[in-house]
Design a binder for these strands. Sequence first.
DNA 1: TTTTTATGTAAGATTTCTTAACATCCCTTG
DNA 2: CAAGGGATGTTAAGAAATCTTACATAAAAA
Lengths: 134, 134
Amino acid sequence: MSDEIRRSMPLFPISIVKSLTDLSARQIRYYEEHDLVHPARSEGNRRLFSFNDVDRLLEIKALIEKGINLAGIKQVLSMQEAPENEPMNQEQVEEIHNDLSEKELRRMLQQELLTAGRHGKSSLRQGELSRFFH
Amino acid sequence: MSDEIRRSMPLFPISIVKSLTDLSARQIRYYEEHDLVHPARSEGNRRLFSFNDVDRLLEIKALIEKGINLAGIKQVLSMQEAPENEPMNQEQVEEIHNDLSEKELRRMLQQELLTAGRHGKSSLRQGELSRFFH
DNA sequence: TTTTTATGTAAGATTTCTTAACATCCCTTG
DNA sequence: CAAGGGATGTTAAGAAATCTTACATAAAAA
């Protein structure tokens, strides 16, 4: 409920998002230009990304790494947003299954990376996050 | 486990921390100058705050609003960091009790505001309290 | 009263971000 | 093969954010 609020709260400048996603600023801006993400803006017109935005960029990246082009990614993402419509054919079902497991992987990453909560220490550095994707 | 890593990961520029804590930049820098927080720095020397840092600033703010001066706050915070030392007298115990409830309130806010993760709500940590009660 | 504490404000330097343009490389497709 | 489009890199110029330092000040402490 208020999860959505937390997750959509504009928090991160592009520099942080770069390091979190391992995407270039150019890529991030390009994806925005093509309507794949919609970060908020500061008063001074700086991009401010939410957890959801970072999330989305990680999805995009995973799909890119699968060789899907931006048009395809846009399609996939739009399907995620409105998943309960007309009945689907087999291909679509598979697509969504893939997407969902992708999403679960993302969630694991998300948990690893961003979830609040305390205590314990293992060391996990940025490069290793890519082990969740290929 | 990797909680501590997430929570100590440098993510936020001072502008975001200002809005998250409702402290002025001057205050935040002043508290740093007096060793109450220790945000990381970017390559270009910009402050980068972690969730823990924000957390800490919210504690500081709550203590400030109670009328406690920086020396007192520093004391309180240091006690939180190394709580398992010499036995305490009654006043100290009460101080910590107050502090802990303060801390729990903060955590609730924190949960509301910043916690990632969609299902389930983690709540009180018995582990932390058990240090003081057994 | 004098000093200290906590904060505000201003100036000037530095860093980060923005958009826009042009370059490059790799696919398609005719 | 050549031409075109897609995705990304690179660079430039300017705007915005942040940094440190210094000075100002109200309230609290001494």
